[in-house]
Design a protein around this nucleic acid. Structure first.
Ligand code: FES
Ligand code: FES
Lengths: 141, 141
DNA sequence: TTAAAAAAAGATATAAAAGTCTTTTTATCT
DNA sequence: AGATAAAAAGACTTTTATATCTTTTTTTAA
């Protein structure tokens, strides 16, 4: 479903959501150590997210990455689509050129339901909301 | 979710299910032309499936690939697991080392439902049953 | 019994994804 | 101002997935 890059990105954003604020930044190394993810690789992903205004950063001493209020209120979907592109949620599970209920593949019905459920969730819930669950329900990131 | 290899394999097996029988074989080229898939690549996938008794073949003139009665009655899941390995249906969607309801990731609940639905389908229905739907309901392969 | 057709096997090639390293820029603090 | 800390940018390397090519084996049929 998601590329490794995307998995790393989602986890990093959720981590930042409950660890950072505009005046509580965090460096790449802390994130990558905590999530057990390759550091320089994660750095590039965070930069990509930063360019797309889904993550914020400040350079220099005491700088680092963080989520602004605006960042926290984006649906998680945006993070996914920033890394893996918008087709993740619309592509046919068997790789047919187009996925449609008019011209469905044999797995379409099941695959569509699945995808929609997932899409509903990451499309409706914001980063902050999902991160809140992580804290409250003790989920693993 | 599935690798390209796996997508090709699923489509090829379903195609063979309604196109072939023990005395009605089909060559790689026909399959790859029909499905618009790279021929030599598909050949290797079919050979892998053949080694695992999910597809049958006969060499020489008038030879080719086909599905035996036994092949048709395997659940489609076996084809998937033969190509992509058994973890496709049990891996965490965020790449955490293990997926479990005891120690769930933030997307676990939704992801689990999706995966299970899909797994139920390909695990219970046989190749022949799914192929029958393809014919009856005019699905695309 | 030879020629041809097809899969099987294995070697090789290409492309994409994942990961690392180096240099540059920007900000902070002394 | 100068030293330093951090992200940004870009080049590079490695690994994995995808794809192709070549040779061998098996079977059929002329
Ligand atoms: S057509 Fe294949 S998943 Fe929709
Ligand atoms: S723990 Fe991530 S999908 Fe189950």
């Amino acid at each position: 479903m998601f590329s490794k890059s995307c998995k790393y990105a989602i986890r990093a954003v959720l981590y930042m959501a409950y660890k950072t604020s505009p005046d509580q930044r965090v460096g790449v190394k802390e994130i990558s150590d905590t999530l057990d993810v390759p550091g320089p690789f994660l750095a590039k992903l965070l930069q990509q997210l930063t360019r797309n205004n889904l993550v914020s950063s400040i350079k220099g001493p005491n700088g680092g990455f963080f989520l602004s209020e605006k960042n926290r209120n984006e649906p998680l979907r945006k993070v996914v689509e920033c890394i893996d592109g918008p087709e993740v949620f619309s592509a046919c599970i068997l790789g047919l050129p187009v996925c449609s209920s008019e011209n469905p593949c044999p797995l379409h019905t099941q695959a569509f339901i699945y995808r929609e459920g997932l899409l509903q969730m990451v499309g409706k819930k914001t980063v902050a909301e999902i991160a809140a669950q992580v804290s409250q329900e003790g989920l693993s990131v």
